[in-house]
Amino acid sequence: MSTIEPLPEQMKAWAWAKGRRAISLSDQAVPALAQHDVLIMNKAIGLNPVDWKFIETDLGDRWSHGHIPGVDGAGVVIAVGDPSNQHWLGAAVCYHQSLYRSGSFAEYTAIDVRTLIRLPEQMTWMGAAAFPCPVMTAWQAIEKVPVQQGVDILITGAGGGVGRILVQLARARGFKVTAQASRKRHSELYELGADLCIESTEQLAQSFYAIFDTVSAEHAEQLASGVEANGHLVCIMGRLEKAAVPVFSTAISQHEVALNALHGTGSVVQWQRFTQMGEKLLNQIYQGELKGPDIHVVEFDQLAEALREFKRNRKALKYTIEVA
């Protein structure tokens, strides 16, 4: 292992209690590095819906007691498991961690080196930590659908973090975007590139080449009849377990989006493309060409309360945690 400074033995981290389905701040051992790992000294942490869902529901039963949650973070590479990765030492990066590894809710996190996204110079830690999950989820979603210039698509829950990025990516690809969101979000969504904003899908009488649903699998299934023949239904929040339309009817394609899936099944080539696109999109945000999430900053020792507050108000702001 190569390091740029002596490593402590202990760190502060938020650990999960299996019985209580809650997290608490405690002292933990600094993670050991496998050969393919690097150690990140976290500067900021991004909160996401998947965090509280695993902490508070039976999804977390896949974890062991004492697991450190958190998928998004940003910081400095201070150690590498393999000397061949020394060129990463001192690099400013952000990352999306596997749900099944020790996560970002800590002062230090061990990350697979192939998942690192290098930051532009002068990028803020908060902006970087807010980036991976919402932006790369939106990118994965839009990549599911072949581009056809000028065709109509619908994005539901467009006022949320993923939805706002989706509107921009869809507009850049030449789609004609209808965005469903609360009325207070319409002005911003028009500025981001939406052609039409609506409050409810009940207002719709047309069909769409593609529908991107950010609400739930049940909601996506209800919208399936609004997809035109041979069109696309993209379920971002949840997963459609069965065909949403009758056989030999509109023959739509159903898609699921699972950012975590790459950690278990992604090839080297897929990860290279993921990180290359991550760096490209992050640069677009830094240059002001793509509008990232609106950010609310909270101190590290207030993370648990921030996560509860984020759950109640998750559509309004992207909560990020400053690590001292």
Rank of each mutant, 00 (worst) to 15 (best):
V145W: 06
A138E: 09
G159D: 04
L169C: 01
V162Q: 01
V145Q: 01
A194H: 02
T124D: 13
R118D: 05
L116G: 06
F208R: 00
T201M: 06
E143Y: 07
A224V: 04
I211S: 05
T109W: 02
L189Q: 01
A170K: 02
Q203E: 15
T109L: 04
L204R: 11
A130W: 06
P132I: 02
L189H: 03
A141L: 10
I142L: 09
P132K: 04
V162I: 13
A106G: 01
Q122W: 14
F175C: 07
E199L: 03
M123C: 10
K176Y: 00
M136G: 07
E221V: 05
K144G: 08
T137S: 04
M136C: 10
G127R: 03
E143R: 14
P132N: 13
D152H: 12
A158G: 07
G163I: 04
V145N: 00
E202I: 12
Q148R: 14
E191A: 13
G161D: 11
C133L: 11
T109D: 03
V135T: 09
K144P: 11
A217S: 15
P134N: 07
I111M: 06
E107R: 09
Q168I: 08
G157V: 07
M126Y: 15
L223F: 04
Q149C: 13
F175I: 12
E199F: 06
E121C: 15
C133M: 12
T109A: 09
I155T: 11
E191K: 11
F131P: 02
T156H: 08
Q203W: 05
A210C: 12
G157L: 03
E121Y: 07
E202S: 13
F175K: 05
D213F: 06
S200D: 15
E121H: 14
D195Y: 00
D152K: 10
E191L: 12
V135Q: 02
A220V: 03
A224C: 13
D195P: 08
G226S: 15
R183F: 14
C197V: 06
T109E: 04
G226V: 01
R114T: 10
G150E: 11
Q168M: 09
P134H: 06
F212V: 06
G161R: 05
V162S: 00
G174R: 12
V147S: 12
Q222T: 14
E218N: 14
Q206V: 15
F105V: 02
A224L: 09
L192H: 07
R185I: 00
R185E: 13
I165Y: 03
F131L: 07
I155D: 02
S207Q: 15
V151S: 08
R114D: 04
D152Q: 12
H219G: 14
Q180M: 12
I155G: 10
L192I: 10
R171V: 12
L169N: 02
A194Y: 03
E121V: 15
L154M: 05
G226T: 11
F208L: 05
T214N: 12
A194K: 01
S207L: 09
E202L: 12
Y108G: 02
G159P: 11
T137E: 03
V145S: 00
R164L: 10
L192G: 01
Q148I: 14
A128H: 00
E107V: 07
G150W: 08
L166C: 09
R185S: 14
E188K: 09
Y108H: 14
E218I: 02
L166E: 00
I155Y: 11
L189M: 10
E199R: 00
